[in-house]
Amino acid sequence: MITSFPKLLTATVVTLKLLSLSLFFGLFIGLVFAILRLSKNKIINKFAYAYSYVFRGTPLLVQIFIIYFGLGQIEYFRSTFLWVVFKEPYWCAIIAFALNTGAYTSEILRSAFQTIKPGFIEAGKSLGISNKIIFYKIQIPIAIRQSLPAYGNEIILMMKGTSLASTVTLMDLTGVAKYIISTTFKPIEVFIVAGGIYLFMTFIIHNFIKFLEKKYGYSQ
């Protein structure tokens, strides 16, 4: 139990790297697709809806396997420059995670945008503020505040999701835990240590989001 602790801690760094990179890209993807979802053009709207429906309706494991095992099969794809990225399991996992969390994030942000009271936008318009500034200075800050609790849950779900990286040969926290279990046959001890590290991360994320909610909440 004690000897496995340092190994698990170094693996935690891999998990955190995977988590932060996929959240970073995922937030960007989510924002783009949330804006597409709000578009009045029906084709763009349907496309964004289909994206989030497909990624939310299939298991993350399938998505990773399609990207890691599936895409390498296309001959043409292997000759493009993208192959440099897609041959690494590390980047494949991050791409799959980012696309997955992007789909959930787009839904969270969309509903946040839709719940903004029209009065805020109208107030901005009547003050003669341009549409662009209304979007960046009024809609986005309110949407971020609205979506914080749901996004906090999404971060925790994504942290748990990174454990699937171990299925494509990456040695993240779960991967190392599995390796130690299968070599020492002490599943319960390893589970307690690895589970404890995950719980600790959940605890930190949960409290960080609570802190942000307080900071950006309406001053009442």
């Binding site: 925790i156 942290m159 748990k160 999701g161 990174t162 454990s163 699937l164 171990s166 299925t167 779960t174 835990a177 599995k178 279990i181 599943p187 319960i188 589970f191 690895a194 589970g195 995950y198 719980l199 959940t202 605890f203």
Partner: peptide, 11 residues
């Protein structure tokens, strides 16, 4: 709810 599903399955 705070521990990955995969870890529970391995356990």
């Amino acid at each position: 709810r705070g521990v990955p599903e995969l870890l529970v399955i391995y356990l």
